[in-house]
């Protein structure tokens, strides 16, 4: 598979603080690559270095097989960027904003008009063409931000936390739009600290912490990194301490917690954990209102690798 982005040993510091530490990743053509990490892990800095906006001390970055420089206009013309903060002109309408940014890439007026309409359709802004940004809700504003970044139909799109502070409806619309862009052939680099989005969208994922890649691969491969196999939750009021203590001594169990009348049991990889738990509760005459099992998430992977939650 052709590599669209190749980064080797990238290091970037702000004074004594190392924002990116010897980072090496690649992104394959036509894929959605996820950069997952908590706030301050170096996701945005990585993107800004790739885009040649930021200086860096060490490493090399190639896009479309060529070293990226600020004056590489032929490379830039194939790239679309959606920054984390909304970057549109308050003085222009939705249509005018998209047309303006698209016009920086597409000179042909007729072609541009079509592209602008396509971007409006993709982001669901049809009803708001004549609205000014200040008249839009937070979710619609995010969609406008995306439309401005992708209207020129780029081959490579960087989306830096595009769903931050967005309502669920707009979030779904944005995620569907991203899938559509990818289906149309665009390669996408997607940064977020929402693991659900990465799991839903990305083919390959790099988990970042303190500027370092701590895990890299498909979501299935990443989940293999954790020793945890299953997490069983039981809503059981008035559970005796002795039962919790007994559970801790059982085979295949990693951790047991009892908080707010709910029992959380973490198991190692293995079979029949749920069945064994139900049997145990029955044997000990424990009354429960709900019981369910969950497979490990990327947050569990992150927790196990770093000792902290993704959103800490």
């Amino acid at each position: 598979m052709e590599k669209i982005i190749e980064i080797e040993n990238l290091t970037k510091s702000y004074g004594k603080f190392k924002a990116i530490d010897d980072l090496s990743i690649y992104v394959e053509k036509g894929k959605i690559f996820g950069l997952l990490g908590p706030n301050g892990s170096g996701k945005s800095t990585t993107i800004n270095c790739i885009l040649s906006l930021l200086n860096f001390e060490k490493g090399s970055i190639k896009i479309f097989g060529k070293e990226m420089q600020p004056n590489c206009y032929n490379i830039k013309s194939k790239i679309g960027v959606v920054f984390q903060d909304v970057a549109v002109f308050d003085e222009l309408t939705v249509y005018e904003n998209i047309n303006y940014f698209c016009g920086l890439y597409i000179k042909n007026k007729k072609k541009r008009e079509q592209y602008v309409e396509d971007a409006i359709k993709l982001t669901g802004l049809g009803e708001f063409k004549k609205f000014r940004p200040k008249q839009l809700s937070g979710g619609l504003l995010r969609r406008l931000n995306i439309a401005c970044g992708i209207a020129h139909k780029p081959e490579l799109i960087f989306l830096d936390e595009p769903t931050v502070a967005v309502d669920p409806q707009s979030r779904n619309s944005i995620l569907e739009g991203i899938k559509e862009l990818n289906k149309n052939g665009a390669t996408i680099v997607y940064t977020t600290h929402y693991m659900e989005e990465v799991e839903q969208l990305c083919n390959r994922i790099a988990i970042l912490d303190k500027g370092k890649v701590i895990a890299l691969g498909t979501k299935e491969a990443l989940k293999e990194l954790t020793t945890m196999g299953e997490k069983i939750t039981v809503e059981a009021p008035n559970l005796k301490k002795a039962i919790v203590s007994e559970l801790k001594t059982m085979e295949n169990i990693i951790d047991v917690k009892y908080e707010d009348a709910t029992l959380f049991v973490t198991y190692k990889k293995g079979e029949d954990n749920l069945e064994k738990m139900i049997s145990f509760l029955k044997e000990n005459n424990v009354k429960y209102t709900k019981i369910f099992s969950e497979l490990p998430t990327l947050n569990d992977v992150f927790l196990e690798l770093t000792g902290k939650q993704l959103r800490d």
Binding site: Y73, S77, L104, Y105
Partner: peptide, 11 residues
């Protein structure tokens, strides 16, 4: 951020 977006344009 508008400046960053403008700097990313092939202009």
């Amino acid at each position: 951020k508008k400046g960053a977006r403008m700097c990313m344009a092939p202009v």
